[in-house]
Design a protein around this nucleic acid. Structure first.
Lengths: 409, 409
DNA sequence: CTATTTAATTCGAGCCTCAAAAAAAATAAT
DNA sequence: ATTATTTTTTTTGAGGCTCGAATTAAATAG
């Protein structure tokens, strides 16, 4: 049931509302906030007064108060960039990016490291991660004490509580308690999630019109992951964050999947599956542990030049994805899909087969109208999603904070 | 965003809480309600006073106030059975059941009609439905004015708003505005849903322990439907209520489905598919429009007596269901499943194959532990679910009602 | 017949929101 | 230059709500 409802919960809710309105509008006056939130001017006056006192919001820096004409001029408030410093980390095989953003969401400093994660042990990975963050803080000339929160998006399996990496292609070690590492080192709340979850957050920010209630991102990389947004919330499993779209069944007793089972979508659409097929190997050939992006691009090139085998590999990937989507759409009605990641470079070659599969299996739901899009480079999305996640969580903390407005009286 | 904004919304929420506690506990004293809801005794005192005034709750009828020992005896309040009269209807091919329940949820009157729905036109169906309700009201010696709400669970496709039957095997006509029929005739709010939705409601009531956060009911009848409960709420499409589990893809380019496509789960697990297979017809044989329950029972009998073809038909049905479930479990972690309907009579024969399919495709999620159950007769469940839906909706209305406690002062 | 125990109500304090009135700060008009 | 007008923001007072504490009610135990 609903959380316990007391009278001051109302204030907390409305503080959240105001914060959300400020994020949406950027800079806005009290009147605009009142309009946006639907609350009365009196209430907004009270809440913003608190926020100003708490240094969450700040008055205009200088003469940016553009009086629009007659009447008392508006006082444009904005979120105080200094109110928080947040760190968003994106990790995948051989790649580590650390992004510092202020409470406005503006980038303060960004550092990207290419490294050989695959040969790292747990302890090596830990020290690389910790020093990367410290380095970035130093580069930004920021005191470590200013950091307020960390969000980390990572390739692989993350537990649903967002505390540890159960498994990742980056590292042979399992069950790495990354949350604990970071919280011990930096003393701030840390949240870890699968990169797909971060990607959907970023998409919902980039195009709130299209990606609102229901949508999904399919991440085509070594595995085939999915970030699924239903009813405005991320869907996760109970044991792992993110949904395992790649392990939905495509063909019973079909090609060998990395998970050891047969016929998963991933066994046709994962990068190793495409390489396997394009190189003329059988469906039961053991999946290779690692595929270079270059190899996939080469296959795409071959396909564009008319290579039958390469083409059929990509087509089959499209069919597997399309069939999986149609199964998903049987449960919930169709929604926009974005293909993301290295596999998306051949989007144009796969799309017709995705659509054909949708058409062949979807009933009376206008498969032609399904909105398909692609974004080849997922990395910026992961970082972006991390900052959004972190900022949202911090907003919640701030809204819940007791506000001692008349404490000094 | 969150709807709680004003101070009286708090009261509405807490009224809902009290009502929910009363439904859960049956009869209980103010102190018990306070404990159950987590609200203070003072608040409960105020809210129950209002409810008593509004005649939603009633004091104990007679000496049922069992003083447990020392101290002031508790006054056990209960929901006023007279506070509402609700009608729950279950409709399927050749079957119509009308159930009247009071606000406590106790049956006042029930009537079941066997009829040849299949040859009814829209207008015939309408008059049969209306007169069945009127008849039941008369049989219960109830004034039509006492009726407060109608819920209807029906086989077939219902729009997500719960207003009309888009398509149903009962009747050749489409897009029947049933909500409008009933609301015009009886002047009360009416809600229509797919029978699967009603079934899950009933299950969550019957065993709240097992069927709580996530679970699903698979309805095995002519089609293969699913009522899906995720995060304590029914999942539906945007155009149709209920999820089309039967039209998830099982085998690309496989058996011919009633929907005209190939390879759907239903094309293997629907009653027509089982009959088709057991009778040695090819997978592409046109699905028969109607299958009698008797035929399905006969096949189950044959299978039990060692008939190879019948057995393999049921086994394949099990494999299709199991594979579909494993795909579902790839997205969301495993949850309890109940098989319901005529197809569930051969549950024991199908179960091993469902489990085998789960084992063959699920990754690291303990397929053995998936909780499978079955209930052959879905009809009582549909009626039961209807009453729960209707009562819950009416509770919401009552909680939202303005309460004029001191109006007469 | 009094003490004890438990249930339910009442009361006052402290929240919160809102509408209306008041104040503030600009431009337009005289 | 001064007054009127317009628009934004703040202040004020009324009306809700929940809660803890004190009070009242209604039984049993001694």
């Amino acid at each position: 049931m609903n959380p316990i409802v007391r009278s001051d919960d109302v204030r907390t809710q409305n503080r959240k509302r105001v914060l959300a309105a400020m994020r949406k509008q950027g800079v806005s006056s009290r009147t605009e906030i009142a309009h946006e939130t639907g609350l009365s001017a009196a209430t907004i006056s009270a809440i913003t007064a608190d926020f100003l006192e708490e240094n969450i919001l700040v008055p205009p820096t200088d003469t940016s108060l553009i009086s629009s004409g007659r009447g008392r001029p508006t006082i444009s408030l904005s979120i105080n960039p200094e109110a928080a410093l947040i760190c968003s980390i994106s990790m995948s095989v051989n790649y580590l990016s650390v992004l510092l953003v202020n409470y406005l969401g503006d980038t303060v400093c960004e550092q990207t490291i290419e490294l050989e994660t695959r040969c790292h042990s747990e302890s090596q990975l830990r020290s690389v991660l910790l020093s990367a963050i410290t380095d970035t803080m130093v580069a930004a000339k920021m005191d470590a004490a200013k950091l307020q929160r960390i969000a980390l998006g990572v390739q692989g399996l993350v537990d649903v509580a967002g505390t540890k990496i159960i498994w990742s292609p980056m590292c042979e070690d399992r069950n790495m308690p990354v949350k604990k590492w970071l919280e011990h080192q930096f003393g701030v709340t840390t949240h870890i999630a699968n990169d797909c979850d971060m990607i959907v957050q970023a998409l919902s920010k980039r195009d709130p019109e299209k990606y609102s209630d229901n949508f999904a991102a399919v991440l085509l990389a070594h595995g085939v992951g999915m970030g699924l947004f239903l009813r405005q919330t991320v869907v996760n499993g109970t044991s792992s964050s993110a949904t395992e779209f790649g392990h939905m069944s495509f063909k019973p007793d079909g090609a060998l999947c990395r998970c050891g089972k047969h016929g998963c979508i991933e066994a046709y659409a994962g990068d190793y599956a495409i390489v396997r097929h394009a190189n003329g190997l059988t469906e039961c050939t053991q999946p290779s542990a690692m595929v270079d992006k270059i190899d996939l691009q080469a296959i795409t090139e071959r396909a564009r030049n008319g290579d039958e085998l390469a083409l059929s590999a990509l087509q089959q990937a499209g069919t597997a994805i399309g069939t999986g989507l149609s199964s998903l759409f049987a449960l919930v009605d169709p929604f926009p899909i974005v293909l993301v990641g290295s596999g998306a470079v051949s989007f144009d070659l796969m799309e017709p087969h995705i659509r054909k599969a949708l058409k062949g299996t979807m009933i009376a739901k206008n498969p032609e109208r399904v909105d398909l899009d692609y974004i080849a480079d997922e990395r910026p999305l992961v970082s972006e999603g991390g900052t959004i996640t972190a900022l949202q969580m911090h907003d919640d903390v701030i809204a819940n904070q007791k506000h001692f407005n008349q404490a000094s009286a």
